[in-house]
Design a protein around this nucleic acid. Structure first.
Length: 479
RNA sequence: GCCCUGGUAGUGUAGUGGCCCAUCAUGCGGCCCUGUCGAGGCCGCGACUCGGGUUCAAAUCCCGGCCGGGGCGCCA
């Protein structure tokens, strides 16, 4: 009954076309294709795969009617699916009165075409479809809220109000194809390094760093919050003996910031590892994670990066580590001045990014040994033995923007308790967390990485919202 | 939260006191065209964010509301 059978051979997929008994070797599973199983109920194929058919062969394709070029006696329908834009040819004297109906289908309607492949060098795809039937599965209203292929761009607000339409643009789709691959790369790395993927609660009783940045929720009448970080749970899992874990999950920040690199809901990529000797172990793991996932995207997503016109340059090892105090000196040498306290602020980050790029030809560097008073809310940060005014905490900077924050955690119960008391935190509020530290806690550390920032910097996007399907910020709650 | 900045047809814009019953592009509608691919040609449609104020006169100036964009603090 089915028109396709599928056999897996190595990483390639071979389909046998039953009508012809011919083998079609699909390029790979890199991105577009999904033929790992034989879905006999899915007869429609991607336009990219029509290329693999013989000249004159019947096929069924479908997509969005991008535009109609009506020349009078002949018309061309440009139809877009996820893999490309193909052309359907309508000859008036051959199809008669339905010609007028077909050329008047509104743009962006979904149409389903059965027809014959005809090879030609007059289209980008190298073929066109001579239809035997065309049906409209979903009519599009007129006018469109924004044009998918119009020569004018829409404002961000218009675009995000009509995100479904915005995402029909090829270059928007590409971002999410890269994002998907980057996550594959991340998971590939962690799997190979023996990390366990976990999920921790997102509805919590208390945050990691006080209550100021938390969204309140009503939890069966009790006061609760959306988690702004999995921090405390990750540490508890170190106490539970999981040793190496990672989590890819949303984090919520009710900060009232409105910038191109902040959103209220983002995907936090966290890992935590036990039995480290120092924060250097964490930094090195971080650098290899970033490198591996970038290389993965470069290999698997070459066509996407090419289409986006982006060159990806992963970090080389070792990634330079610059203590915070030295960062200040460098910035002073570069002529930076401060009104208040000397620290690496947004301007400083950008300057240091340029400095490292010019002097060491790298997009990456760590800022290490963050002063304790700059991490004042981070009660769980381990401080340097020789100088408690410094922490073991670091940031990883990518193209002049903070990408990662992490360090070695304080695993000694009495020290942790003392650091909490410095901040006037009530240990009773953290009892379920603190308890973990009283029954054998190994030395450990970890990081949090902003996934969207990673993609933003990777693809040189102006605004972090471009990396999120439906972004949440201080004013946007829908769609 | 602070600072800067904007809101004109479906979309993107021009217009900074009278020359504006508002420019251009795109879109949409109609007509012509059998190889278009930024299709082309001709004709048409469609807008000043809301409320107050100043003025003989407001898209334009002032105040407020609503909704954006950018920067900073902060952060992933």
């Amino acid at each position: 009954m089915s028109s396709f059978y599928v056999i897996l051979v190595l990483s390639h997929v071979i389909t046998i076309h039953q009508k012809t008994g011919r083998f079609i070797i699909l390029d790979s599973l890199k991105g577009f294709y999904r033929y790992a199983f034989n879905w006999e109920f899915m007869k429609r194929i991607y336009s990219e795969d029509v290329k693999l058919l013989e000249d004159g062969e019947q096929c069924r394709v479908a997509g969005w009617l991008q535009e109609v070029r009506n020349l009078g006696g002949i018309a061309f329908l440009k139809v877009r699916d996820r893999t490309g834009v193909f052309q359907v040819v309508l000859v008036k004297k051959e199809i008669g009165e339905s010609f007028d109906d077909l050329v008047n289908i509104p743009r962006e309607s979904v149409i389903d075409i059965e027809g014959r492949k005809q090879e030609t060098d007059q289209t980008d795809m190298g073929f066109e479809i001579l239809p035997s039937s065309v049906s409209v599965s979903g009519y599009a209203e007129k006018p469109l809220p924004l044009g998918v292929v119009d020569k004018v761009d829409a404002d961000m607000d218009t675009r995000f109000d009509n995100r479904f339409m915005d995402l029909r643009k090829k270059e928007k789709l590409l971002i999410f194809q890269v994002r998907s691959l980057l996550l594959d790369g991340v998971r590939d790395f962690f799997r190979k390094e023996g990390f366990i993927e976990v999920n921790t609660p997102k509805v919590v009783a208390a945050g990691a760093e006080g209550g100021a940045t938390l969204f309140k929720v009503d939890y069966y009448g009790k006061k609760a919050y959306l988690a702004q970080s999995p921090q405390l749970f990750k540490q508890m899992l170190m106490g539970a003996g999981l040793e190496r874990i990672y989590e890819i999950a949303p984090a919520y920040r009710a900060e009232d910031f409105d910038t191109v690199r902040h959103t209220s809901e983002f995907i936090s990529l966290d890992f935590e590892m036990s039995y480290i000797d120092s924060s250097n172990d964490v930094m090195n793991m971080t650098a290899y994670l970033v490198e591996h996932s970038m290389r993965y995207v470069m290999e698997e997503g070459e066509r996407f990066l090419e289409a986006l016109g982006v060159e990806v340059v992963p970090p080389e090892h070792p990634v330079r580590k610059i203590p915070h105090s030295q960062c200040i000196e460098i910035l002073e040498d570069m002529g930076k001045t401060w009104e208040d306290e000397k620290s690496v602020d947004t301007q400083g980050e950008k300057m240091l990014g340029r400095y490292v790029k010019e002097n060491y030809d790298s997009d990456f560097f760590f800022i290490t040994e963050f002063p304790t008073h700059l991490k004042k809310n981070t009660f769980y940060a381990m401080r340097k033995d020789y100088d408690p005014s410094l922490t073991t905490y670091f940031d990883l900077e990518y193209k002049g923007q903070e990408l990662v924050s992490g360090g070695q955690r304080e695993h000694r119960y009495d020290v942790l308790l003392a650091q909490m008391k410095e901040l006037d935190l009530d240990p009773n509020d953290f009892e379920s967390y603190l308890r973990t530290f009283r029954y054998g806690m190994p030395p450990h550390g970890g990081i949090g990485l902003g996934l969207e920032r990673f993609i933003q910097q990777l693809l040189d996007l102006d605004n972090i919202r471009e990396t999120i399907l439906f972004p949440r910020d201080t004013s946007r709650l829908e769609p």
